[in-house]
Design a protein around this nucleic acid. Structure first.
Lengths: 154, 154
DNA sequence: TTCCAATGGTCTCACTATGAGACCACGTCT
DNA sequence: AGACGTGGTCTCATAGTGAGACCATTGGAA
């Protein structure tokens, strides 16, 4: 197991490093690297959750809201707009009374599910290790001591 | 191509939907779903970039800062702390004068590179489609018209 | 009949997270 | 002697976010 996995990991590492080097070359325009823009969107707290919710099936506005209970209407609207603007979801209005609106993944949005699934998978597999690490870190905080372990010791 | 890719996509879709359903069952504790916590961290604008930067090799504080130029010292410090707390990176202090500090990925952090690479790969492959979609969306904004296409038409 | 809920949003207000930049203590280079 | 680089922390102004009021309409319940 170590062999193949380590191989994949090394490959991933090298490719990411390579990408990063490429981005860093030339003057740094900040928005010069388009991946930044894309990652920012995905990095959004709600965006990812909405996409996952829509992975099941199309949802209406209220359904999304119920599926992701702790999102405010304001942010839900904004996230849906952003997602629609980026072409990841599609918005359909039906002339019912009152009018109903349905959101569904586009083909582009669906293509995102694969890498997203890889990430969610990783998160599920490693959440315990992360929780453990947090416990260790928090326990090691120099609360009882007056010792400042972070500032420069001079 | 359509066959295999579509197959993977369907699989990803179904698995994500399945996960989401599981999370949604029982009363929603918000923090009940640990994946939320992990995704929030990854969703962080800077976290991901720092991890990618460290994929190359260990970096010192100032090096990370130069690698990700538009991050403030404040957020860099905080992001590095969070990453360290989650066990994704390790912090080493060397007793040089002035003391130098090195950050490197842990094994857990390195394991994140694989799904992260998948995501970055997707972002690079699809950034043009996204940019195009944004263009279309922005062009379709009812600026010239007084028409409000978003609010309910009553 | 009248009142309430649900539809999909928008708008305002308060709070919080973020970025810019000063400051620190030390040592080295000019 | 004065400026700079080390890795941070601290304050302050501004940006982003969440809570909740509000809107217009219609259907169902009281």
């Amino acid at each position: 197991m170590t062999g193949l996995l380590a191989g994949n990991r090394q490959q991933a590492r090298q490719r990411l490093a390579e990408r990063f080097r490429v981005w860093s070359e030339g003057e740094f325009d900040a928005a010069r690297c388009p991946v930044r823009g894309v990652l920012d969107r995905l990095g959004d707290k709600w965006t990812t959750l909405i996409v996952i919710a829509l992975a099941q099936r199309p949802h209406r506005f209220g359904e999304v809201r119920r599926a992701v209970p702790d999102i405010s209407k304001r942010m839900l609207t904004q996230s849906l707009r952003d997602l629609e603007r980026d072409g990841l979801i599609e918005r359909r209005v039906f002339p019912t009374k009152p009018p109903s609106v349905e959101y569904r993944l586009t083909e582009l949005g669906e293509s995102l599910l694969e890498p997203l699934h890889a990430l969610v998978n990783w998160a599920e597999h490693n959440q315990e290790r992360i929780a453990a690490a947090r416990g260790v870190f928090d326990a090691a905080l120099p609360v009882a001591f007056g010792v400042e372990t972070r500032a420069l010791p001079a």
